[in-house]
């Protein structure tokens, strides 16, 4: 029982990060109807910015604290996101959507390969930005491990999620964003500067990706130029599961993905004996496939996601 509770906790802390990354996908899709394939790689850049910022801070005697490092990453990623939007997506605003999808893949490959080229393909140790204390009372009495760092990650993720929701719901910019996502043409006619909204959305989403990158790096203790692929794909799946374009949906989808993956990774299912040895499906071997299985199932059963509204196609 404690085992599964433990796995559930792990899943929730993973899911929070995935939810954070998924928001970037979902917001960009909402306003631009574009799958920003480079989102995962912006996350990678965020993680590396944090590594170098921490090194730099340590060099100049500035305390290497999580609340100091993360904003640096977020700001850098926001700028990067805006730059990518300006160079790669803006010229294709009126092109067929496939064209911008291919450009997005190109940007993703570009960031990955430049990362491998300049940073090396190996793994870089991620600095410990938070203490690795765990809550001793729980550990001693129940053997249930809860780390302070996980709690901080979880709390700051929730904080960011709430902040984002507030921005979308209560600010003028959020209102403009919602208007653009409903109907860009009508929004333009109402005097909304669509391009500026899109730029802002990219900045916001990429900042969240940067935060996600720092947390992902802290959680797994390492960063490498290809690290963005895995969380990127998972977050994308989470966004689709929740109904892409739908902000609360992406959060729920992220938690579903995190928990499902952790629980499946904890399973090993014996499926019988063959040639004198036990055949076991080891869940953790298939954790990467699981997300896509969920994705395909959701797409089949509810193509517009759990919270998405089905929109009939018009001529």
């Amino acid at each position: 029982m404690i085992f599964w509770l433990q796995q559930l906790t792990n899943g929730l802390s993973l899911g929070a990060i995935i939810a954070l990354i998924a928001l970037g996908y979902t917001m960009v899709y909402g306003v631009l109807k574009l799958i920003n394939f480079a989102h995962g790689d912006i996350l990678m850049v965020g993680a590396f910015v944090a590594i170098y910022a921490a090194m730099w801070a340590a060099h100049y005697g500035i305390p290497v604290w999580f609340p100091l490092i993360m904003p640096v990453s977020m700001a850098f990623c926001a700028a990067l996101g805006v730059a990518i939007e300006f160079v790669a997506y803006r010229p294709l605003r009126n092109a067929p959507r496939l064209a911008s999808l291919i450009t997005a893949i190109g940007v993703s490959l570009f960031l990955e390969s430049v990362g491998q080229w300049k940073l090396g393909a190996g793994r870089h140790a991620f600095p410990a930005l938070l203490s690795d204390h765990r809550i001793e009372a729980l550990a001693e009495r129940y053997g249930f491990y809860v780390y302070v760092s996980d709690l901080v990650i979880f709390a700051s993720t929730l904080l960011l999620l709430v902040a984002l929701q507030a921005i979308v719901k209560f600010t003028r910019f959020g209102k403009a964003m919602r208007a653009v996502s409903q109907d860009p043409e009508a929004a333009r006619l109402m005097g909304v500067d669509v391009n500026r909204v899109i730029t802002g959305t990219f900045a916001l989403g990429s900042a969240l990706a940067g935060a996600g990158g720092v947390m992902w790096g802290m959680k797994f203790g390492a960063a490498d130029p290809l690290m963005g692929m895995d969380p990127g794909l998972k977050a994308f799946v989470a966004a689709v599961v929740g109904g892409i374009g739908n902000v609360p949906g992406a959060m729920v989808g992220g938690f579903i993905m995190g928990v499902a993956e952790t629980l499946v990774a904890a399973c090993s299912i014996p499926i019988g004996r063959m040639w004198g040895s036990d055949l076991v499906i080891v869940g953790s071997n298939y954790r990467q496939a699981l997300g896509f299985l969920i994705l395909i199932l959701v797409l089949l059963l509810r193509p517009s996601g759990l919270f998405g509204r089905h929109e009939p196609e018009k001529v």
């Binding site: 911008s100 291919i102 450009t103 940007v107 490959l109 570009f110 430049v114 491998q116 080229w117």
Partner: peptide, 18 residues
């Protein structure tokens, strides 16, 4: 020398001058 860098830049530029 880095095949994928060339690939990715090609991909982006090709789409821009579509």
């Amino acid at each position: 020398g880095n095949k994928m860098v060339v690939y990715s830049v090609l991909l982006i530029v090709m789409m821009l001058v579509r």
